[in-house]
Simulated scan of single mutants.
Amino acid sequence: MSAANSIEHPRLLLVEDETKMAWEIAAELKSLGYLVRIAATEEAGLEAIRSEPAALLILDRMLSGADSLSMIDTLRSECIRIPVLVISALAGVDERIRGLKAGGDDYLTKPFVMEELAARVEALLRRSSDARATSLRVGPLEMDLLERKASRGQRVLDLLPAEFKLLEYLMRHPGQTITRTMILEDVWRFRSAPQTNLVDVHIGKLRRKVDEPGEAPLIRRIRSAGFVLDVND
């Protein structure tokens, strides 16, 4: 199903200072039915989103040579909870993690094909809609947020409250590398990351319940990076 068919004409804000790139992105998204507004600076982007709400922000990581992640901080401080797709030529793992920790919901490195950008936009809009739902479904995993129940296929998962919260967090970020610090800050609300094995202990317990012997492992450890909920295999 195309983005234009799945969501009716959502309004997007693109903050990109490379004129040619901005028009190419806007043209692709407009062809799919999206309404796209372009801003070339962080200040213009903030003014645009304050005056006319958008369903999603596409933000170039470097604007006029400066890191634009501070724009996300400003939006969050004003309680503007718009999903953010960060696009950047900074392709290192540390840079992607920094972009996600700063509040980005997804990170796409340049150069990219327009079809992938469109797919990321559609996925983020769908995820934003799912966040207001009472259930989550990722691959064989299902979660009822009202009844506080989770299952893998036909198998009910007997989860403790902390494990339920942790699995919910992973299911809201499928395919993304989640660091220990992100889990400590977002799940357990630590303001700083203490030296603790709390995350590893809970991930270990959760993996044993989600991935039983004979089943394809869904929760993978990424060496020196963190963990990922991988449902693509």
Rank of each mutant, 00 (worst) to 15 (best):
S6E: 13
P10T: 13
L13I: 04
L13V: 03
L13N: 07
V15Q: 03
E18W: 07
E18I: 05
T19E: 12
K20L: 14
M21C: 04
A22G: 05
A22N: 03
W23S: 04
I25P: 02
A27H: 09
A27S: 13
E28F: 13
E28G: 05
E28W: 11
E28S: 14
L29D: 00
K30I: 07
L32K: 14
L32Q: 13
G33P: 07
G33T: 02
G33I: 05
L35Y: 12
V36W: 12
R37I: 06
I38G: 03
I38C: 09
A40M: 11
T41F: 10
E43F: 09
G45C: 06
L46T: 04
S51W: 11
E52L: 14
P53D: 00
P53A: 05
P53Y: 05
A55V: 06
A55N: 09
A55K: 15
L56E: 00
L56F: 07
L57E: 00
I58N: 01
I58C: 12
I58R: 01
D60M: 08
R61D: 02
L63Y: 05
S64G: 11
G65H: 09
G65P: 07
G65L: 08
A66Q: 13
A66D: 01
S68P: 05
S68A: 15
S68T: 06
D73S: 14
L75C: 11
L75R: 01
S77D: 09
E78T: 02
R81T: 04
I82A: 01
I82Q: 01
P83M: 02
V84T: 05
V86E: 00
V86T: 02
I87L: 10
S88W: 13
G92N: 09
G92S: 15
V93R: 14
D94P: 07
E95N: 14
R96K: 15
I97Q: 06
I97N: 01
G99R: 04
L100Q: 02
G103K: 10
G103S: 04
G103R: 08
D105S: 12
Y107V: 00
Y107M: 03
L108G: 09
T109G: 03
K110W: 09
V113C: 11
M114A: 10
E115S: 15
E115C: 02
E116R: 14
L117K: 11
A119I: 06
A119G: 07
R120L: 08
E122S: 14
E122K: 15
A123M: 11
L124G: 08
R126C: 05
R126D: 00
S128M: 11
S128L: 04
S128G: 15
S128F: 14
S129V: 13
